[in-house]
Amino acid sequence: MGNRKDEAQFIGQPAKVIQTEPAMVVEWPRTFLHRHTYGKLTPFFKGLQEGRLLATRCTNSKCSENRLWLPARADCPDCHQPMDWEEISHPVIGTIYTYTKVAYGGMGLEISEPYWQIDVELPGVCTIFKGWLRYGEPKIGMKVKAEFQKVPTNTILNIYWVPYEE
C-alpha cells in the first residue's frame, strides 16, 4: 500500500480547449532555444560585425575551377580542399541581378515590411549574393553599395545594400 502524502502531482497548466466540434482541439504552446553554430563560416559572420565582406577562394593548384564564393563556404566543392578567406575590397559595389518586394513575410521576420530583397552579382564571384535594399527602388543592372548595421545583428541581416552612384 502506498502513502498518498508522497503522490505525484500534475504541475502543468491545463491545455486550452479552442474548439470541441467537430473534434476537440487544444493548444500546445512552447518556446525552444536553439544554439546555432556558424562553424567554419565564423570569419564571415565576424567580418560582418566589423563591416567587412569576406568570401572564400579555392587556391588549390590542382583544382580545375579556383572559384571565389559568396555565400562563402569553407571547403571547395570541386576539389574538396579547404579554401582561403578573401575580403571584397571597399567600397563593395555590386549589380542587381534580380529582386522582389516582400509584402508578406513569415513569423518572426526581422525587417519591416514591405521591403526590397535583392540578389547581387559581384565582380569575380561565381555565385549571386542575396540581401536587402535599405531604400530606393531596384532595377536589374542597377549598382548598389554594401553597408553594415552599426549595432551588429550577428546574422546575415548585418549587411544591407543602398543605391550607388559613381
Binding site: Y38, Y99, G106, M107, L109
Partner: peptide, 30 residues
C-alpha cells in the same frame, strides 16, 4: 511559412524573408 523557410539556407537566406514566395519571386522577375 517560417517553418517552410527553414528549407532555405538558414545562414544566408531564411532571415531574408521567412517566406518561400519571396525566394521564387526574384526568379519570376528575372
Amino acid at each position: 511559412n517560417t517553418y517552410i523557410s527553414f528549407a532555405a539556407c538558414k545562414d544566408y537566406e531564411t532571415r531574408l524573408a521567412r517566406m518561400y514566395s519571396a525566394y521564387y519571386a526574384p526568379m519570376a522577375k528575372r
